[in-house]
Simulated assay, not measured.
Amino acid sequence: MVKGTAADAAGTAKRRARASVPATPLARTRRARKLSGELAREFPEAPCELDFRTPLQLAVATVLSAQTTDVRVNLVTPALFARYSDAAAYAAADRAELEELIRSTGFYRNKATSVINLGAALLERFDGEVPGTLPELVTLPGFGRKTANVILGHAFGKPGVTVDTHVGRLARRWGLTTAEDPVKVEAEIGALLPAADWTPFSNRAIYHGRRVCHAKKPACGACLLAPLCPSFGTGPTDPQLASELVTGAERGHLLQLVGMQDA
């Protein structure tokens, strides 16, 4: 059960007013930076949710994460990383053995092909090391700009806007873009925020999309970002109903930010 406080009733009513879509580039910039600040309140720490210790491990984990959850990938990778320690090991992997190790992530045959080819490409063109630039990364098997930006931001500390399904959906709901093409979304978000904010903004938006602003039924009435969101009302606006949709280890913190608490 979740309860709110009487003192927050007025704030809840205020959040029922739908924010306008930013009409100018300056308004979009201001909105993006306000959203970035509020996301930082929600998720002060928002690390990559894939477990890794090296750029190669992150590269492999990111390839495996396609069309499955990070939780599922993290269940698979300890045994995988213990079996294959470098690019040469992946390039020479026995396909049947590799497929069995990653089977539970789904699409395991295609993913095995990508991982084996990734190892071979790293050996042939990059001395077995994962490169640290976007133009080089996007040439690797199984890599697109999203994967490349994950690697840049988390393995090399280089800013990048990661546009996955969550970031694209939220950017449109927030009125920061109307684009459907991830490359266009990446460019437009990048133009609105300082480069230093690109990676943390992406991470926090992904966290928010997974825990609060769900694709089919967002928790509008229990969302800290509601006053800034032109799409408020896409999901339940009643705080009690909306609170039931908030998930994740941060649930208690997220509810407290909107004046509610578990009881």
Rank of each mutant, 00 (worst) to 15 (best):
residue 119 G to R: 01
residue 156 F to L: 12
residue 48 C to I: 11
residue 227 P to I: 05
residue 74 N to P: 06
residue 142 G to F: 10
residue 133 T to V: 14
residue 144 G to Y: 08
residue 151 I to L: 15
residue 128 G to C: 07
residue 75 L to Y: 11
residue 77 T to L: 05
residue 225 L to Y: 03
residue 106 G to H: 02
residue 135 P to A: 10
residue 48 C to L: 13
residue 13 A to R: 14
residue 184 K to G: 02
residue 138 V to P: 01
residue 212 V to Y: 06
residue 144 G to H: 06
residue 200 P to W: 13
residue 74 N to V: 05
residue 56 L to P: 08
residue 230 P to M: 07
residue 13 A to I: 08
residue 150 V to E: 00
residue 179 A to Q: 10
residue 140 L to W: 13
residue 246 V to K: 06
residue 40 A to I: 01
residue 145 R to E: 12
residue 47 P to L: 06
residue 193 L to M: 08
residue 39 L to V: 13
residue 101 L to R: 07
residue 43 F to Y: 15
residue 254 L to P: 00
residue 111 K to Y: 04
residue 258 V to F: 02
residue 109 R to Q: 09
residue 223 C to S: 06
residue 13 A to G: 11
residue 24 T to L: 12
residue 111 K to W: 06
residue 91 A to M: 05
residue 244 E to T: 14
residue 55 P to G: 05
residue 254 L to M: 02
residue 132 G to M: 08
residue 124 E to H: 11
residue 93 A to M: 09
residue 40 A to S: 08
residue 209 G to K: 04
residue 71 V to T: 14
residue 171 A to W: 07
residue 60 V to C: 10
residue 139 T to C: 01
residue 138 V to Q: 02
residue 121 A to E: 14
residue 111 K to R: 05
residue 260 M to G: 02
residue 233 G to W: 08
residue 227 P to S: 11
residue 215 A to K: 03
residue 169 R to A: 13
residue 186 E to I: 00
residue 257 L to M: 03
residue 15 R to Q: 02
residue 163 V to H: 06
residue 180 E to P: 01
residue 219 A to C: 14
residue 259 G to W: 00
residue 166 H to Y: 09
residue 129 E to Y: 01
residue 103 R to G: 00
residue 114 S to G: 05
residue 232 F to L: 05
residue 117 N to P: 01
residue 186 E to S: 03
residue 113 T to C: 07
residue 29 T to L: 12
residue 45 E to S: 10
residue 119 G to L: 04
residue 105 T to Y: 03
residue 8 D to P: 01
residue 56 L to G: 13
residue 248 G to A: 13
residue 45 E to C: 03
residue 21 V to W: 15
residue 219 A to E: 09
residue 152 L to M: 14
residue 40 A to Y: 08
residue 120 A to V: 04
residue 217 K to P: 09
residue 169 R to M: 11
residue 170 L to F: 04
residue 75 L to I: 05
residue 171 A to D: 02
residue 73 V to N: 11
residue 143 F to N: 01
residue 68 T to E: 07
residue 138 V to L: 10
residue 172 R to L: 10
residue 83 R to G: 00
residue 173 R to N: 10
residue 146 K to I: 09
residue 6 A to E: 12
residue 62 T to K: 06
residue 63 V to R: 03
residue 123 L to I: 12
residue 262 D to Q: 15
residue 196 A to Q: 13
residue 41 R to K: 15
residue 196 A to I: 09
residue 108 Y to C: 12
residue 146 K to W: 04
residue 59 A to M: 05
residue 3 K to R: 13
residue 152 L to T: 06
residue 194 P to I: 10
residue 215 A to Q: 03
residue 226 A to Y: 03
residue 141 P to Y: 11
residue 209 G to Q: 08
residue 161 V to Q: 06
residue 69 T to S: 15
residue 255 L to Y: 08
residue 209 G to A: 11
residue 156 F to R: 05
residue 235 G to W: 00
residue 240 Q to I: 10
residue 74 N to H: 06
residue 178 T to I: 01
residue 54 T to R: 07
residue 41 R to V: 13
residue 87 A to T: 04
residue 82 A to I: 10
residue 152 L to K: 06
residue 12 T to W: 15
residue 238 D to W: 04
residue 72 R to S: 09
residue 71 V to H: 15
residue 154 H to D: 02
residue 55 P to N: 05
residue 29 T to F: 01
residue 167 V to S: 00
residue 83 R to E: 12
residue 104 S to C: 12
residue 193 L to F: 04
residue 69 T to F: 07
residue 78 P to S: 12
residue 199 T to P: 04
residue 28 R to W: 03
